[in-house]
Amino acid sequence: MNIFRFFGDISHLASIFILIHKIHTSRSCRGISFKTQVLYVAVFVTRYLDLLYSWVSLYNFVMKVFFIASSCYILYLMKVRFRPTNDPSIDTFRVEYLVGPCAVLALIFNYGYAVTEVLWSFSIFLESVAILPQLFMLQRTGEAETITTHYLAALGAYRTLYIPNWIYRYFSEGYVDPIAVTAGLVQTGLYLDFFYVYFTKVLQGQKFELPA
C-alpha cells in the first residue's frame, strides 16, 4: 500500500458516498445513468469473487464488501425507492457494445484460463468503460447538477491516483500488471474531457454546462 493507492481508494469511497448523498438529499436520481451503475455491480461482483476463496487483508475484505453492497444499494435506490425520478429515455447508451467486446478481450488477454481469471480480466476491461453511459448521458443533456459532477470528479480522481501508484509499484516491486495498467490508462483518459470542464467551470463556481 502506498499513499497514491490509499488516497485513490478513499476517493473511490468518497465518490460513492457523494452519489448516495445526492440521491438522498435531492430525493432524486435524475442525471445518474442506471446503466453505468449496473455495470459497476457487474464489475465488482466478477472481480471480487476471490472474496470466497482468498484472504488478502482486513482492509481489502472490508472495501470489497463495501463496494459490492453499496453498488447494489444504489441500484435499489434508483429502481425502487426513487424509481419515478429515473428517466430511462435519456439513458440510451448501448451497453451490449461494451459488454461484448470486454468479454472477447477477457478471453484473449488474461492470466490463465480459469473462470475466475477470465472474469477478473473481464471486470478490469469493463470497469475501464463502465462510465461511458454516464458520460454519454451528460453529453446528451449538456448539463449536470454540481453534486453529480463532484461524484464524477471523485471517481476520476480515484483512477488518476492509481497511475502514480503503478509507477511507485514499478520502482518498488519491479513489476507492472499489463492488463490493469492498460485498461486503467484508457479509463483515466475517458475522464479528460470531463475534467477540463470540471476545472474550468465547476471549480470556478459556474454550472456544469457543455457548449451547445
Binding site: R5, D9, H12, D50, S54, V56, S57, N60, M63, K64, F67, Y111, W120, Y162, R169, E173, Y175, V176, D177, I179, A180
Partner: peptide, 10 residues
C-alpha cells in the same frame, strides 16, 4: 508471479 501479487488492488 507478479500479477498474482497485484491482485491486492481493488
Amino acid at each position: 508471479a507478479g500479477w498474482d501479487i497485484w491482485k491486492d488492488e481493488l
